[in-house]
Design a protein around this nucleic acid. Sequence first.
DNA 1: GTATTTGTGAATACGCCGTACGGTAGTGAG
DNA 2: CTCACTACCGTACGGCGTATTCACAAATAC
Lengths: 217, 217
Amino acid sequence: MPLSRDKIAATAIRLADAHGLDGLSLRKIAKELGVGPMRLYDYVINKSELLDLMVDVVYARIAEVGQRSEWRATVLAIAHATRAAALDHEWFSDVLGGRPHLGPHALAVGEATAAALSAAPGVRDIDDLQRAVGALNAFIIGAVRREVTERRTARSTGTDEAAWQASLGPYLTRMLKTGRYPTVARLVIDGAHLDAEETFNHNLATVLDGITSRPRT
Amino acid sequence: MPLSRDKIAATAIRLADAHGLDGLSLRKIAKELGVGPMRLYDYVINKSELLDLMVDVVYARIAEVGQRSEWRATVLAIAHATRAAALDHEWFSDVLGGRPHLGPHALAVGEATAAALSAAPGVRDIDDLQRAVGALNAFIIGAVRREVTERRTARSTGTDEAAWQASLGPYLTRMLKTGRYPTVARLVIDGAHLDAEETFNHNLATVLDGITSRPRT
DNA sequence: GTATTTGTGAATACGCCGTACGGTAGTGAG
DNA sequence: CTCACTACCGTACGGCGTATTCACAAATAC
């Protein structure tokens, strides 16, 4: 089988899923494909372009959710698909918002969200639309990043209470014991039980409500 | 002068400001300080800890804005300070949301925002507060990241129309000419004149309004 | 005053990385 | 048969983070 951009991107994604973006190297991808490292440069200009390729593959899956009849259903579907993709491919969240997403599938997703939002109440002219797209994407980017980061630290410290106390605990509990961060302390101690997906949905609804219910520009 | 964590962090920040996070290396920092690379390991465990140090220095400046009397004024001040810090230190936006921010000054900022939001109308119990903090931070992270990324591409392609057309233009205009992305095309062509700061303010207000005006949990 | 310990900072070294470059074998065209 | 061309491969360079080793001066012991 003759090696192609798609195959390279696919194995790159597999490796990145397994070992993270830092653990990803052209040499490992090449080894995985059974070729020399330089072979990849016949299909890809440099590592950055390979990253763009990987990103657009993920966007392709996001774009699959397509268009619903209602604008809000479309936006919700895209947001959920983006979150799901980032949870499937945590490296995706590392790149989210950090570079221009100009691949064809990324543009398709952008088109779908913009088209949906342009049909939302309260979005009257282009300026409204630009702001609405910005607000929605900003929220999605930030929310997904936060959630993935949390998942990672939870995994690295260990999920259970004991390991937590052993790794981050000493420093953090000492910090919180100082009494200088009472509200944060309350949040950490009392509020760890919220479901991540529900929180995402809730806040997404909040943002959408804010967009649609703005009285003036 | 005997070299310290603060001095190391300061020159690291200077170098990162000048050449980006990718252009930052322990060897260059050491050379800038006139010492061997290994000297740094007497003050810092590894590069990741140095990054945490740099991040908390930036948070220290953000925390300086302190507490206003009104909760909304406090939140606005912190959000603006965060944005300003990210525009001063673009590498900061690369890290934003990508790792737990647990330094003392980062915690101080978190405390200030959480305390302010807990006084907002519509934020009744801890769960409300946790969601509100999440929504606000998600927006700030995403918005700042987007803006910095835009600035970078604008700078790398050149600000003027000609350079733009020369670099990203060919691919992007070809894409938009396909007619598959009409809404995006309209946004790119008609809507490039919005002021970034005003957009940030507007969307921040939108999010805050959404938070305060939620009828039910 | 000499010998010995101790600690500080420099030098070297290892295993990675992205990628520039030169070479080789096979293939179709003249 | 020759020749250009393509598809592929190995080697090499400079840089990275960091583990280890080493030189040497200051401090201590006799």
